[in-house]
Structures are given as structure tokens and as C-alpha cells.
């Protein structure tokens, strides 16, 4: 098991390095001048040149990459071109908000998805199954931002039940688990949970239906186990794949919530990334993408490590 984990970790390293190269280069390929958003349009040329030197944008790309990677390894992602604030602090602050949102959305999505998928799998080909399948297809297909806007129009603008934007009365630094704050989380979390819910429901439904059809289930029933006892065997067989799907989905939730966070002005990485893109804030953009990508790599690693614990067959393979 230890050798397996070590191997997985070693495999992850070149992936992480490629991630740094790609996210460094991607932002340089995009059109537009990184300083145009920082310096006003009528800033004199010498000010712009001085800013370029100050941010190291006058050096060749390879040198810029080397310097950036060297600092990044030490936890210093530079400072934002637009605000002058340290990127590491900015991104970590935003990551904590995104983690909060993604975690709540993932729990909602996973629990609802498992419940729906389980019911549909047990009642395969029934009306209930069809309803659940339709709901999960809708969940996967509905655009996040559209659903977010619809929910906002209904629950904020019309009914005045829930706030339309923001992370609570005092801003994100002052988050506490009281209703005044939680009510800000409800709409974005529900919006964000719909896709993983659909994915998990579809996966679990297929797996449950498949497992129930296998001979060992018949054997267990024939041996006199109750349905409840058999259910635990089904769960054990379904869990590794469902977890793998959820692990990937959590990765998407962390990075893919740009639109949802923008619609709800939720101060997470998606909101930060959106601003950084529009402001051409290269250090901020690189830092955010890097941290999100590394999260994704780490999550996959975690899933790779957890899966064989649940399913010993995988260790042998």
C-alpha cells in the first residue's frame, strides 16, 4: 500500500509541473496588454515602461517563468498588478470562500444524488426511475448561471426571502455559522450543487441497478440476509466509483464556479479569476489558476489513494 501511494505521489509531480508551464503560458497567449487595465489610458509612456520593469514584464518569457516558478515554490506568487496586494494572500482568502461554497454544494449534491440514484436503481424502469433520470439529465444540462439568475429573481427579487449577493453582513473575512451568514450561502450552494447531483444520481443509479443484477446479491438473499443487510453490500460495491465521480466533481466545483460566483458576487476564486481575466492581472491570474489546478491534482491523488482502501481489488491492479 505504501509503495502504491508513493508511486501515485511521484506520478503527480510531473503533472503539477506541466500545470505550472501551461498556466504560465496560457495567460501570455491571450490578447491585450497586461498593463492597459492598470495604468489609465493617458498614462505617459515612461510610466508604462517603468511599470513593465517593476513587474518584470520586460524580460524574456523563459526568464519570467523561471523567476515566477522559483518564487512560487517558496509560496510567493508575486503581487497583483491591479491592486498591489500579495497574490498568495488574495488567492488563499478566496480559496477559503470557494472551499466553503464547494464543500456545502458537494455535500448537497452528493447526498441528494446518492439518494436519487439509489431510489432509481432499486426501482429500475419504474415511473420514479424515469422521473429521477429526467431530473438528473436536467441537472447536468441546465446552465449554472441561468439557474442562479432564475433562483435570484424568484427568491430574492420577488419573494425577498434570501439575499441576492455577497457572503454575509460583514464581508467574507467575518464568516460565522449563523443564519445571517448561512442565508447568503443557500442560493449559490443550491445552484452549484445541481450538476454534481445529476452526475452522481446517474452514476449511482446505473451502478445500483448493475450490482442488484449480479449473482452474489441473489446468493446473499438465498442465504437468508435481509434486504437491509444486502443494501450495505450494495453500498460497498457502489461507493468507490461514486466517490471517484464526486472527487472529480469537487475539482470542477472549485474551478468551475466562476459564473456562479460572479452571478452571486461570492468572493471566491471564481469571482477573483473573472476579475483577474478582465483586468489582465497576470500575476493574480497565474496564481489563481495554479492553486486551483494543484487542488485538482491533489484531489485526484486523494481519490486515487482512498479508492483502494475501499476496494482492495484496485490495489492488486
Amino acid at each position: 500500500m505504501f509503495a502504491y501511494m508513493l508511486r501515485r505521489i511521484v506520478y503527480a509531480l510531473p503533472i503539477a509541473l506541466s500545470v505550472t508551464v501551461i498556466c504560465f503560458l496560457l495567460v501570455h497567449i491571450a490578447p491585450g496588454d497586461p498593463l492597459s487595465a492598470v495604468a489609465p489610458v493617458d498614462a505617459p509612456t515612461e510610466v508604462i515602461e517603468a511599470l513593465k520593469r517593476a513587474y518584470g514584464l520586460d524580460k524574456p518569457l523563459v526568464v519570467q517563468y523561471g523567476l515566477w516558478l522559483g518564487r512560487a515554490v517558496q509560496g510567493d506568487l508575486g503581487s497583483s498588478v491591479a491592486t498591489g496586494r500579495a497574490v498568495t494572500g488574495e488567492v488563499l482568502g478566496a480559496v477559503s470562500n470557494t472551499l466553503l461554497l464547494a464543500f456545502v454544494a458537494a455535500c448537497l449534491g452528493f447526498l441528494a444524488g446518492c439518494a436519487m440514484g439509489g431510489i432509481a436503481g432499486y426501482r429500475s424502469r419504474s415511473v420514479l426511475d424515469r422521473v429521477v433520470s429526467a431530473l438528473s439529465v436536467a441537472g447536468v444540462s441546465v446552465p449554472h448561471y441561468w439557474l442562479g439568475m432564475v433562483l435570484t429573481i424568484i427568491f430574492s427579487a420577488q419573494l425577498h426571502w434570501l439575499p441576492a449577493m455577497g457572503a454575509g453582513p460583514g464581508g467574507s473575512g467575518a464568516w460565522t455559522w449563523d443564519y445571517a451568514h448561512i442565508r447568503h450561502l443557500i442560493l449559490p450552494a443550491v445552484t452549484l450543487s445541481v450538476i454534481p447531483m445529476g452526475m452522481v444520481a446517474r452514476t449511482v443509479r446505473a451502478l445500483v441497478a448493475d450490482v442488484l443484477g449480479q449473482e452474489f446479491v441473489q446468493a446473499l438473499l438465498a442465504k437468508g440476509l435481509t434486504h437491509r443487510q444486502v443494501f450495505f453490500h450494495v453500498v460497498k460495491n457502489v461507493a468507490p466509483t461514486a466517490l471517484a465521480v464526486m472527487g472529480l466533481q469537487l475539482g470542477y466545483l472549485l474551478g468551475g464556479s466562476i459564473l456562479v460566483e460572479t452571478v452571486f458576487a461570492w468572493p471566491g476564486t471564481g469571482f477573483l479569476l473573472n476579475n483577474a481575466i478582465f483586468q489582465r492581472d497576470i500575476p493574480l491570474l497565474q496564481g489563481t489558476i495554479l492553486i486551483l489546478s494543484l487542488f485538482f491534482v491533489a484531489l485526484n491523488l486523494l481519490v486515487d489513494i482512498v479508492q483502494p482502501m475501499l476496494d482492495p481489488r484496485m490495489r492488486r491492479s
Binding site: 439568475m149 435570484t152 429573481i153 430574492s156 427579487a157 420577488q158 425577498h160 434570501l162 439575499p163 441576492a164 449577493m165 455577497g166 460572479t262 452571478v263 452571486f264 458576487a265 473573472n274 476579475n275 478582465f278
Partner: peptide, 18 residues
């Protein structure tokens, strides 16, 4: 002062009393 770049979110924030 709150920065809300998305116009629909601004409108919703106004209508919800935020």
C-alpha cells in the same frame, strides 16, 4: 460601497433590498 460587476446581480440586489 459594494463592487458588483454583473448588471443582473446589481438589479437583483436592489430589488431584494440589499
Amino acid at each position: 460601497l459594494m463592487p458588483i460587476p454583473e448588471p443582473n446581480t446589481r438589479s437583483a440586489a436592489l430589488m431584494s433590498g440589499q
